[in-house]
Write a protein that binds this DNA or RNA. Structure first.
Lengths: 211, 211
DNA sequence: CGCGACCTTGAGATGGCTCAATACCAGTGG
DNA sequence: CCACTGGTATTGAGCCATCTCAAGGTCGCG
């Protein structure tokens, strides 16, 4: 049985690393779990995470969920090719964003906007590889490593993300995620201080696990 | 046992629907299966399909393959955020493309390039939903429907794509793809004339199957 | 203290995988 | 013309990774 000191979402430091185009907008806050916009709504606004984290969600008619991406401080989201959001966006934890009209992007250089979309695309393709071809263990490990990198967290990762969100991102069930984490700990590869704080004890070995 | 009149790839009509930026380049042909560029190579060229079809492939160290996207006539591919291709590109069948230096894109408008990347991204997110949350039957059906639409093929889809490529795109094995198609035919939803030519007999029912 | 949200663990079921055999077709060479 | 080969597709049988269902634990909060 696992020690379970804290079931609250870990705070995410508001560090905008700003490789994205500057975008002035109105600040807005969302509570944990709150919807920022819904699938199918008119996509006339674009957003940028200031602090917290955002999930982009696609849902099937029968309720199956797939999180297609997370966004962390400094990142832009809500930009669409069409006039409607293809995925919903929700706050993963207490989150603040800035909002701007989409038209306010037109002044940006082609390079910067295009680069942003391309980076998202590449991350999505990595994700597709994970979903299509990796085992449960590989999925969880690659997720932890990706998160450590994106949050610039070193070896000690504070998960702003629940087991359910991990499962919905990784195409697994919550039970499988939980069991996998337990097993990784039993193997000495990670240490789970509390369920939202994970220490990557053997990053080299972890990286080898997923390729 | 299935009639199997033809195991050759179906030809893909060279119909560039040209919503993409005009891009003059040198024409080049590739044989079925031939590599156009490899994962990790310097990404200084961009390509456009003239006829045929192209697959973008990510491969794990142990050989597991995931096709992250297909490209059909008129579509651009090979554009990267970084300086290196993140996925390899291969000709699915006899294919001709035009090639240009990446720098030749800089004259294009922000809107058009950006829109292209965003469309690819949205398709990739759909793909992630399929890989993460749909059953084998749903995957195959959504693939057939997507292909019918992208090839503008109506109800009679000529697959330029082998069972193995379908499997590698859908995150399944070739056996599962084959069994699924057999079952769809037994259910009267499709008719397989030869293994590369599929008739969607009840498109409505098929669409309902995957959402 | 009791409730609700979240997480873990166990036992059994199952969808898709693995391994193996067979079939079909195109091309090649005798 | 046939035999043979290699690439592709289909089918079957058994297995296993993950899912489902169910129970219990931990924490934060009213």
């Amino acid at each position: 049985m696992q020690a379970q000191v804290l079931a609250r979402p870990a705070p995410v430091r508001p560090i905008p690393p700003d490789p994205t185009p500057s975008l002035i907008g109105i600040a807005k806050s969302f509570a944990r779990g709150q919807e920022i916009y819904g699938e199918g709504e008119a996509a006339d606004l674009v957003y940028r995470v200031v602090s917290g984290a955002v999930r982009e969600v696609r849902v099937l008619a029968d309720g199956r969920r797939q999180i297609v991406d997370f966004h962390f401080p400094g990142e832009l989201f809500g930009v669409q090719a069409g006039r409607v959001y293809r995925a919903g966006a929700e706050a993963v934890c207490e989150t603040t964003v800035t909002v701007a009209r989409r038209s306010s992007l037109s002044g940006q250089s082609a390079e910067s906007l295009w680069g942003l979309a391309l980076r998202d695309l590449e991350r999505c393709q990595d994700h597709a590889l994970t979903l299509g071809r990796r085992s449960a263990t590989e999925r969880v490990v690659s997720f932890l490593l990706e998160l450590a990198e994106r949050l610039d967290a070193g070896a000690s990762v504070e998960l702003p993300i629940s087991r359910q969100d991990m499962a919905d991102y990784l195409g697994l069930t919550i039970e499988t995620v939980s069991r996998t984490i337990t097993q990784l700990q039993a193997d000495g590869l990670i240490e789970v201080r509390c369920c939202r704080q994970v220490l990557l004890k053997r990053p080299r070995a972890l990286a080898e696990l997923c390729e």
